[in-house]
Amino acid sequence: MFLQVILTGALIGSVYSLVAVGLTLVWGLMDIINFAHGDMMMISMYTVFWLYTLLKFDPFVSLPISAGITALLGVLIYKFVIKRVVNAPGLMALLATFGLSLFIRNFAQFLWSPNYRFVGESILSGKRIFLADLIIGLPQLAAALGSIVMTFLIALFIKKTKTGKAIQATAQGRDIAELMGVNTEKIYAITFALSGICVGVAGTLLSGIFPVYPEAGAMYGLLAFVIVALGGFGNIWGAFYAGILIGLTEALGGFYLGTQFKYALAFLIYLLVLQFRPKGLFGW
């Protein structure tokens, strides 16, 4: 049973990681915490839901569409909200993204009502594999593997490509990057698109497992913030490991203490770690 709990935690933790990677990218580059991050994920879940309901698209077919929509949403958020506050004092950006988050949630509620909705079927739903004593749901497995692959691709993109290196350079100093010919506004927009792709993919992978409703992204946004802090702000692999850690904590806490405690334990770990390592477990 213990192994089953660990497995469940690690699987969901990988998805948390991907959401957190999207958040940490933006933080690492611009020192901005995007409070609307989880709500972008909710938009991707609704995208999958409507494509399924209206057009009978399988969630896996919808993946590029929903990721594309959240990427675009990321760019729009940058252009119309972040760009105006990026040079303003820190609290401005915070308030702006907080306001944006409320706006997106209320807008979703207005358009689609607060009701829980479910994506009924995907090619994987209900399927599972048995491994010795362990039961692994295929949707969960796909969500975890998809998230890990995506995290890996994002890390590779940042490390190896010319645009990725320009993102690193911009993170180390906007003026310096400009002096090398980098259009840093474009880099900001691209990073918001990448961040959107992360939540778009995560939201799609989760839509087959969890209900879709306007507040669906809220807890993920909050957990992502905790994970980013634990992993060291701006640190992609730090966010990855911290995400798994939070997934495990949640599963173990839920199983041994009761489901009402599962998030409490995650936040408790966060508070404890920050007492001793203010820059996170993997911060320098």
């Binding site: 003026d175 400009e178 002096l179 090398m180 010919g181 980098v182 259009n183 840093t184």
Partner: peptide, 8 residues
């Protein structure tokens, strides 16, 4: 001009 164009 913005800095990144002046480099060019």
């Amino acid at each position: 001009l913005p800095a990144h164009q002046i480099v060019k």
